[in-house]
Amino acid sequence: MNRFGELLLALFSWCCTLLLTATVGILMLFLLRRGLPAFDAALFFGDTPPLAALLLSKPVFDGLFPALFGTLALVLLAIACAVPVGLAAGIYLAEYAAPAPKRLLNLFFDVLAGIPSIVIGLAGFALAIVLHRTFSGRIGHCLLLSALSLAFLVLPYLIRSTQNALEAIDPVTRRTALALGASKLQNILYVLLPNRLADLTGGVILAVGRCAEDTAVIMLTGVVASAGIPNSLLRQYEALPFYIYYISSQYSGPEELQRGFAAALVLLSLCVALFLLAFFIQRRLKERLLYR
């Protein structure tokens, strides 16, 4: 490539980066401008005293608190279900699977990753109906079913990110502990996984983001516009993405729309908080695993 070509490529890359950064910046500014004025205690707790709402002693009828609680519970539950299975399957594919089944499973998980979330939502919906009939109305659309459906949705990302992270380890590092007398499992636990902690955390962060934002799956499996704080995993619940969707499609005035923007800001903040938590856990784990 000649000098002019290189310059053109650099300029194009720079413009793309600038465009992307500017778009994100403008979006954030727009959200802040529209949502921030609605930020007060009433946005979260309505007419209920905040302390009473936080202690769950009084229900919140017209605030975001139940939706915030529902989203947090949903994401944590989905991640708790998906991470162990995703890590284990990724480890199996990278370290144990024979070439033939590995090729087949890789294809299967790639197809699974491409399934639209509405289809997974429909599968959850069908399961809810079956459960509802089988257990005569005691189990149906609920928080647990939504979390399991979301876990299923993010599993391919977790599996692939774990597999790719482990397969990217250089052969010398891979053989170091084995040459010192480590078993295969010791090598995975003490060397390979700690080595790729940042990549594994990246996979979990992607999964957290996907769980927090997805609306199609939860709409069909358990979320409702008004349910309060769920007192069991088998109850329906509220969630921020559904609240934003509901408000933006059925708002009756500018004030209500403003609450929708505020809810979007709250959802973004929740995601950032969960990302920071993931980084904090990664850092603590790294210190614990790698240093005396």
């Binding site: 010398v172 590092t173 170091t176 502990a177 010192l180 007398g181 003490y190 790698l290 240093y291 005396r292």
Partner: peptide
């Protein structure tokens, strides 16, 4: 190529004993 594990000096040398 020297291949110390991403650990402290002490833990590197103690690692085979742990294994």
């Amino acid at each position: 190529t020297p291949n110390p594990l991403p650990m402290s000096i002490f833990r590197n040398v103690a690692f085979p004993l742990k294994l």
